[in-house]
Design a binder for these strands. Structure first.
Lengths: 111, 111
DNA sequence: CCGTATCCTTGCCGATACTG
DNA sequence: CAGTATCGGCAAGGATACGG
């Protein structure tokens, strides 16, 4: 899988590069983790978990995660508005793989 | 593993965050991939594989990868100088895990 | 050949104010 | 409550010149 990336295409076209692009940035992984832990979470709830994130950044990240189909956004047409975010099946399957990175990190942390 | 990160600590302390910090940036993964493929590679050789990378960025990245003990730098005391870079065992073990991300990406790429 | 030094550009992210 | 709009800071990365 990995070993053919150089001959056949450039790095941008690899599955690895694609996967990383889904979770790049400072907060996406933490958002996914929160959704994994709490399952269904509202906007301001997420803001409290992700201490110090700005409205703009959270909003941007949620939109990207949704368009990458890792999370599901469910909007209730009411006043005041209510929106719930949760992991999609696709998002859950990604988290399973990322857990392996977590385990490697715990085992191999230096110092 | 993942599920306890919120209660026990913040995201910065997780193994996952640590692992990602090792390969963050635009080029580190590509460098590791090159070393996996070609095993022993010299500085200017890497520069040719990583089209458009600047001397400074390549130099910085190699130093960080070395201090994180993912790669090995071997210098030959001669003129003109000769330096060879290769994956450490630790680097190889990380690549094995990253391959899983690559596979997930290939399977789940949209469009 | 293998870098370092310097300056510059760019894109992510934060802060704040405002809206349906 | 759940965002959007606008402005601005800051650090990663790029371009180029130079050094051992």
């Amino acid at each position: 899988m990995i070993k053919n990336f150089i001959e056949n295409a450039n790095f941008e076209d690899t599955g690895f590069s694609y996967t990383l692009s889904l979770i790049s940035g400072k907060y996406k992984m933490v958002i996914l983790y929160c959704l994994m832990e709490y399952e269904v979470v509202r906007f301001n709830e997420l803001k409290r978990y992700l201490k110090n994130i700005s409205d703009k950044t959270l909003s941007t990240n949620l939109k990207e995660l949704e368009s990458d189909r890792l999370i599901i956004r469910r909007e209730y047409p009411q006043i005041p508005p209510k929106v719930e975010y949760s992991l999609s099946d696709r998002g859950k399957s990604l988290m399973a793989v990322l857990d392996q990175l977590c385990i490697w990190g715990e085992k191999n942390k230096l110092g």
